[in-house]
């Protein structure tokens, strides 16, 4: 039947191939075709099982692991850099605050110092004024005293001189009156 025809064709083809093999192409020698197919399928299957069950998951694990680690590290780095930035900002704020504080302290102490100095100055001036007043008063006293004593001295001297010259005593009251008159008129000329 048809099958037989096919078989004959196949065998014919086979023979041709055998001939070709003898002519120089060992690839067309069907002697070891089954053996080659068998071993190919066996070895390939084993290799496939080993690779798909063992090696590929491992390589994939390694790759995923690395990618994840790199990603994590990058995230961490980003977080840290943000943190650093924030910290930096904080420090800068602190520094500017401190600067402001320092300025404030300086102005305040300056003000305080000014105030102190003014106070001291005022006190000193007050004291000085008092001293001056005292001194003026003393001077005035001395002046008054001295003018009084001058009057006395002048009276006595006048009395003596008059007594010496005239030989008689003038009464004290008239001398006193003339001295007073002179001093009244001339004292300003001598003392102030």
């Amino acid at each position: 039947m048809r099958l037989k025809v096919h078989l004959i064709i196949f065998i014919y083809w086979f023979e041709t191939l055998l001939f070709a093999a003898e002519a120089g192409m060992p690839q067309l020698d069907p002697k070891y075709w089954f053996s080659q197919s068998f071993w190919l399928i066996l070895i390939f299957l084993l290799l496939y099982l080993l690779i798909s069950k063992f090696f590929i998951p491992k390589i994939k694990d390694n790759l995923d692991d690395r990618e994840k680690k790199i990603k994590d590290n990058l995230d961490e780095a980003k977080k840290l850099s943000e943190l650093a930035e924030r910290k930096n900002l904080d420090y800068e704020n602190e520094i500017s605050n401190a600067k402001k504080e320092v300025v404030k302290i300086i102005t305040e102490s300056k003000k305080q110092l000014d105030k102190n100095i003014n106070q001291k100055k005022e006190q000193f001036e007050k004291e000085l004024e008092k001293e001056i007043k005292n001194a003026e008063k003393e001077i005035l006293d001395v002046k008054r005293d001295s003018s009084k004593s001058i009057n006395l001295i002048a009276e006595e001297i006048s009395a003596k001189i008059i007594e010496d010259i005239t030989g008689n005593k003038l009464n004290d009251s008239s001398i006193k009156a003339s001295v007073a008159e002179v001093s009244k008129n001339k004292m300003g000329k001598y003392l102030w």
């Binding site: 790199i70 780095a77 980003k78 850099s81 650093a84």
Partner: peptide, 20 residues
């Protein structure tokens, strides 16, 4: 220095994204 680091970080991030 800080800027340099940031640029590198950005580049590395982009590489990862490109891979995804």
């Amino acid at each position: 220095d800080d800027n340099n680091f940031k640029t590198r970080l950005r580049i590395a991030k982009r590489e990862i994204l490109k891979k995804d």
